[in-house]
Design a protein around this nucleic acid. Sequence first.
DNA 1: TGGAATTGATTCGAAGCTTAGATTTAATCA
DNA 2: TGATTAAATCTAAGCTTCGAATCAATTCCA
Lengths: 413, 413
Amino acid sequence: MSRGVTESADRAAFSLKRVNAAALLDFAWRTEAYTASDAIAATRLARSTVITLCDELVERGWLAELPNARAAGEYRKGRPARRYELRADAGAVLGVDAGQHCVTAAVADLRGRELARAATEIDPDGAVRRAAVTDATIDRALASAGVPPSAVMSIAVGVPAPTDADGGSPDGEHEFWSRMNPGFAAHFRERGWLTEVENDANLAAIAEGALGAGVGASSYIALMSGERFGAGYVVDGHLVRGRRGGAGELRALALVEGVGSTEGIGALLREWAVDLRRSGAVDESSPLATTPRARLGAEVVLRAAESGDPDALRLVDRMAERLARICAVLGGLLDVERIVFSGAVAESLGLLLPRTAARLDELTHPPAPRLVASPLGGGVVSLGALARALEIVRAHAIGLEPAAPIREQTIPF
Amino acid sequence: MSRGVTESADRAAFSLKRVNAAALLDFAWRTEAYTASDAIAATRLARSTVITLCDELVERGWLAELPNARAAGEYRKGRPARRYELRADAGAVLGVDAGQHCVTAAVADLRGRELARAATEIDPDGAVRRAAVTDATIDRALASAGVPPSAVMSIAVGVPAPTDADGGSPDGEHEFWSRMNPGFAAHFRERGWLTEVENDANLAAIAEGALGAGVGASSYIALMSGERFGAGYVVDGHLVRGRRGGAGELRALALVEGVGSTEGIGALLREWAVDLRRSGAVDESSPLATTPRARLGAEVVLRAAESGDPDALRLVDRMAERLARICAVLGGLLDVERIVFSGAVAESLGLLLPRTAARLDELTHPPAPRLVASPLGGGVVSLGALARALEIVRAHAIGLEPAAPIREQTIPF
DNA sequence: TGGAATTGATTCGAAGCTTAGATTTAATCA
DNA sequence: TGATTAAATCTAAGCTTCGAATCAATTCCA
């Protein structure tokens, strides 16, 4: 007697319906309010299928059915179409920049609109408190956005250290890396959030591609250029991470002639200006001489150069030479369309960019990559973290449960 | 009266069945002969489903049903299982190395087993004949493999030029690139073959990852190092191509201290040896002095060094220094696990590799990438082309029609 | 030698989804 | 008011997949 010992294991994790629902939800994400006909065109499913799926997604809390039928401007004949829309408040995402001196947490809705932001200064050496400070900053941001922690669907954290696929950072660099990334990944996964911990320059690259100067390019480099150089590569549309997330660590640039170290624009211009003043070779009326020592930095030099100060101009040219070499090597080895200068310095590059570009043209075979300044300012990393967190949610959406579906709000007829 | 104007367009291109069939076929590719039970475990589909799909794939010519039930060694109780196997002869793939001086065409079956190979020397300057010579070489290879052109499912062509996603090469470099790639992509697509034209170093990288010294690594660089350096990057399991397929063009290395040019190991060791002899500083008994001028090249130097010749050893150390710098920059910027020395020179590197590795350790922060010599010899590019062509077939398999399904050969019961 | 035991093939009804087409509904237009 | 239009809704049918029951081909063991 065969006892019907079935070989039933857990079945294939995807059904066609699941795939179709995901496609529809993705379409909703890509558009504003839409009608069934729009969705039919986009998904190539039959009308009945689309409507069934939409209704189910409304039921589950992902979509809202909008009241007005043909309110959407374009006046049309025929029976008014039902309209649906992604519920931007069906959840929230967290983007954290856990930087060396400052932790920033941003909250956004499912459309990526930032709802709130909080920041805390932090002692770079206090290792233990780092996680606690980050938690507190996140809680403040959530509170000020009015988002309950249960509504958070994912979090991305940027750290100034390489990270592996699990979000861990290798020991090394005198424990600096593990101090900067004290087990963030495990910590946030415990809170039930989809979590990614990523190198800060990589997140900057994602931000540039999503909202910044990388939009439209499939291969570009985001060059973080404050105190230290660090880069995030996006080539062929993919973030290039490397064995341990170390791609974009630029220590190897020390071997490039005329570069020598990985000190960034901020650090070097400050040093150079100080050295120059100390040597006494600066004209008395130059801002390089008159600015109080504590405020003498990259910004002062760049601004002075723009207003024609010859000493500052010399420093700018020296920096342009150095930058051009960095760009030539990175751009040449990776064949990118653009190199985006990212981070806080990007706002005041002024003359530096065109001069670097001119020198780059001499150094490379055409076409040289285009050099552009990021419009995103000092918040790039947290913006990139938000963008990445949103990507994660979108990739897992059909498997997630929307927060607080407001059933009553959907229109009966 | 509504005339039932259906909005039927061509429907979504994928059915669940199609996806399942693809998964099953892919499983068949990953294993040798298998039973339905094996497939059930692998695909997590129900038994009836699996058997239906297998029978259909047999019918279509993708699979063969094997005669013997439990011939496969392991003695088992119970009713003998039907056994299936991918028909390796259901099609063929072509891998072509259209090099500067020599065109090589290889034919393989669907398991990647090479069936035949043909090569033709070619004048590097004769532009027009390049396509014709390639065609002829392919035809010879096909004929000697006994494969009709109609059985070819895909072709990958390696060229010494960057290529874009469509397989075109930019003008530039004094027309050299377009001479090396005279519209191969369009040409072979006209013959009805799935076609990919790819930079030769990139194909070398694919070969190393599939059969060579890159197996098991998800991030590595294949460094082609004969007359000129050229590299193929695989990072995070993806080939990194760049804006115009120019990633891996190493001209930017000219900016690295102690490197200067992109001349390869072969070219430089020859030059250095010739210079050294001309300067008269070579010991009379050294192979560097005794070898006839025309044969004085990298191999002679490397072999002499291995047998202890001090002049040759000095050249090897000089080369090790240079290589170490190249590896430090590439490995450091991309964070790879390994750097594979690929191409014909790889076979005789001898002392050069450990000495380069030692110097690399000094130049980089640990862990330095591991340096390994390719076991694939001078045929890397055509092997990589075969591997890539096979990848293409596997990716498109369910949409393809197998060649000459031999219906009668399947076992009736 | 013959009946368990075992393993897999076959068969078949049920359930889940998607679809095309028919029908109904809600609007505009004349 | 009725024709027209575009969309929703309903319905029956088809395709896949699944699970269970049944059948088939062996080995094991008394």
